[in-house]
Design a protein around this nucleic acid. Sequence first.
DNA 1: GCGCGACTTTGATCAGGATCAAACCGGGTA
DNA 2: TACCCGGTTTGATCCTGATCAAAGTCGCGC
Lengths: 249, 249
Amino acid sequence: MKLKMEMSLDTKECWNCPIKHQAVCARCEPDELATLEQIKYYRNYEAGQPVIWAGDHMEFVASVVTGIASLSQTMEDGRTQMVGLLLPSDFIGRPGRDSAPFDVVAVADLTICCFRKRPFEDLMTTTPHIGARLLEMTLDELDSAREWMLVLGRKTAREKIASLLAIIARRDAALRKHTPKDGMHFDLPLTREAMADYLGLTLETVSRQISALKKSGIIELDGKRKVVVPSLEKLINETGDDMDGGPIA
Amino acid sequence: MKLKMEMSLDTKECWNCPIKHQAVCARCEPDELATLEQIKYYRNYEAGQPVIWAGDHMEFVASVVTGIASLSQTMEDGRTQMVGLLLPSDFIGRPGRDSAPFDVVAVADLTICCFRKRPFEDLMTTTPHIGARLLEMTLDELDSAREWMLVLGRKTAREKIASLLAIIARRDAALRKHTPKDGMHFDLPLTREAMADYLGLTLETVSRQISALKKSGIIELDGKRKVVVPSLEKLINETGDDMDGGPIA
DNA sequence: GCGCGACTTTGATCAGGATCAAACCGGGTA
DNA sequence: TACCCGGTTTGATCCTGATCAAAGTCGCGC
């Protein structure tokens, strides 16, 4: 059993938070940050642990600080669809509702910064910065979700895999604050099954298509979980998207 | 060529607008409404006409007043995916961005209430009501989009058709301000092709599955475009969703 | 080292939808 | 009336990805 990951001390204050420029608190004035500081607390989850089940009462909203979580739905017969990946700075929860619409599960070891819901909502009504930033983030997420609908509804298995890899490559580059480039390598944080659930495929098909991309020289694998992209252009060619643009998040 | 539909005079003032309680202006105070009144104008489109192409510069944001529009994406090779249906009171556009992320096309004769973008954005910063309402609407749309991802990624053709019919039935009932019930009948506002684009299917499969549902007694058809639902429960059984809940929008 | 369990790969077969093709229907117009 | 045209239905066949099954890989604890 792995030890629970703890955040290092120096990230425990808002003014030193690694996501302070991207998260819902990005626009806050010092006094607003001070208020957030009062109502926040951290929670840690290890890979695989559930954070929230759909329908649960939520007493907090939160921001992902480090790690990855998934947002997903499951039908009675067990078919599941992942509907979003939550990366650092992404927001969890909905001011104004108290039950969660989807399951949230830690995919990799996860730290979230929780805000007690009632005070957070109060703060939203008394200051414009949080609401404005949340609106901005929500509109971006809505665009991302809609772009993903094209992947789910119209792309082939190979295109789906390539699209997922391209997105992870872009996000990984963004987290490291440089642009994606040829020869880049990154961690594949998802199991084959999680990829399948995100892409609306089976895990066997995911495995086969990854093998096929490898055979075509589009990607190289280093172990099961590390990917090298020799030519970003070739990868994007496989996604079915036109060269520039394409889903960002 | 059909005559362009014009709104009747009595809906041309905000205080008499049919969607004033649901749209982005729902929370506005009288003085805010007065400002909106200054910056708004109506536009009409007939079925089939484009409203905006993806990438276009947008000089307005808008609310659907009457009719239906679709939000969609098309790949270079022609594959298209509808990513949303816009019904009366739904919002078009994104404060803070000036190019449209998706195509908007009138599916049925359409009237929208446009707000010049710059003044609208200014109004958003000076009053909380519009931003708060827009956030609320955007969060709902995000949930809807994510629910639709389950349909696209994991449901069978039959389940997809049943899900679409169930959604249209619910929305139709909501527009008429009563709850959906057994024996209800409603208009099918979409062509088979539009349904296919919404569901990630081909139009032939849509046609076949509608025939199959008819043969099973789940629905009855009156012409090509009117549907009767003898038992709502039976229809929902076909969606794969559990009885209550299910996608709302 | 060995064995176990979680995850992954690969193979064989099946089936749900796509594709290609043709006929049908209803409404508008010459 | 006959014709045409957009939308729809139905049929025959194909193919992608699902399903069922078995073997391979890696990390970890004993």
